[in-house]
Amino acid sequence: MPFVWLISFLFIFMSFYHNELLAAVLSLVSLVPYYLVLWLFRNQLKHNFTFKIKPIK
């Protein structure tokens, strides 16, 4: 999900600013709210996800 977020914002910022460095920095900065929300809801998310690993035969 962060990859899709990053690429989407990269294209959006490139269309507005036409500067690759600025677009890259802004798209990386746009990940801060994403991870902040994940961090704020970490206790609720901890109870909702379970992962199981199955052996490969």
Rank of each mutant, 00 (worst) to 15 (best):
residue 7 I to M: 07
residue 41 F to A: 12
residue 20 E to F: 12
residue 10 L to E: 05
residue 35 Y to R: 12
residue 7 I to W: 05
residue 35 Y to M: 07
residue 1 M to F: 10
residue 57 K to M: 07
residue 17 Y to V: 09
residue 27 S to M: 04
residue 36 L to K: 14
residue 43 N to K: 12
residue 32 V to P: 01
residue 33 P to S: 00
residue 52 K to P: 08
residue 3 F to K: 05
residue 25 V to Y: 03
residue 47 H to D: 15
residue 42 R to P: 00
residue 51 F to L: 07
residue 50 T to G: 12
residue 47 H to F: 09
residue 24 A to Y: 11
residue 47 H to M: 07
residue 44 Q to S: 13
residue 13 F to H: 00
residue 4 V to Q: 10
residue 44 Q to K: 07
residue 14 M to A: 06
residue 33 P to G: 00
residue 48 N to Q: 15
residue 42 R to F: 03
residue 47 H to L: 12
residue 18 H to L: 04
residue 55 P to R: 06
residue 5 W to S: 02
residue 34 Y to H: 10
residue 1 M to W: 10
residue 34 Y to P: 02
residue 42 R to T: 01
residue 29 V to K: 03
residue 39 W to K: 14
residue 57 K to H: 11
residue 52 K to M: 09
residue 50 T to E: 14
residue 47 H to K: 14
residue 17 Y to I: 09
residue 52 K to R: 07
residue 32 V to D: 02
residue 24 A to R: 04
residue 15 S to H: 12
residue 52 K to Q: 14
residue 17 Y to H: 13
residue 2 P to F: 11
residue 6 L to Y: 09
residue 57 K to A: 13
residue 26 L to C: 00
residue 22 L to W: 02
residue 33 P to Q: 00
residue 39 W to N: 05
residue 27 S to P: 04
residue 52 K to H: 15
residue 33 P to M: 00
residue 4 V to D: 15
residue 6 L to S: 08
residue 56 I to P: 04
residue 14 M to E: 08
residue 57 K to D: 13
residue 43 N to L: 14
residue 30 S to W: 02
residue 23 A to N: 01
residue 16 F to R: 07
residue 7 I to E: 06
residue 50 T to F: 15
residue 13 F to I: 00
residue 29 V to F: 05
residue 48 N to L: 14
residue 39 W to S: 10
residue 44 Q to V: 09
residue 36 L to A: 14
residue 56 I to E: 05
residue 20 E to R: 08
residue 45 L to Q: 04
residue 12 I to K: 10
residue 39 W to L: 08
residue 37 V to D: 05
residue 23 A to H: 01
residue 23 A to S: 07
residue 53 I to T: 14
residue 39 W to H: 14
residue 49 F to H: 04
residue 22 L to D: 02
residue 50 T to V: 15
residue 38 L to E: 10
residue 4 V to P: 08
residue 24 A to D: 05
residue 16 F to K: 10
residue 5 W to H: 08
residue 1 M to V: 08
residue 34 Y to T: 05
residue 5 W to P: 01
residue 27 S to K: 03
residue 32 V to C: 03
residue 11 F to N: 13
residue 31 L to F: 01
residue 10 L to M: 12
residue 45 L to R: 02
residue 39 W to P: 01
residue 26 L to S: 00
residue 47 H to Y: 11
residue 48 N to V: 14
residue 3 F to M: 04
residue 46 K to H: 04
residue 5 W to D: 02
residue 9 F to A: 10
residue 11 F to R: 12
residue 40 L to S: 13
residue 25 V to M: 05
residue 45 L to A: 03
residue 5 W to G: 00
residue 40 L to W: 13
residue 18 H to G: 06
residue 21 L to G: 09
residue 50 T to Y: 15
residue 34 Y to M: 09
residue 38 L to R: 15
residue 12 I to W: 05
residue 15 S to E: 09
residue 31 L to Y: 01
residue 9 F to D: 09
residue 29 V to P: 01
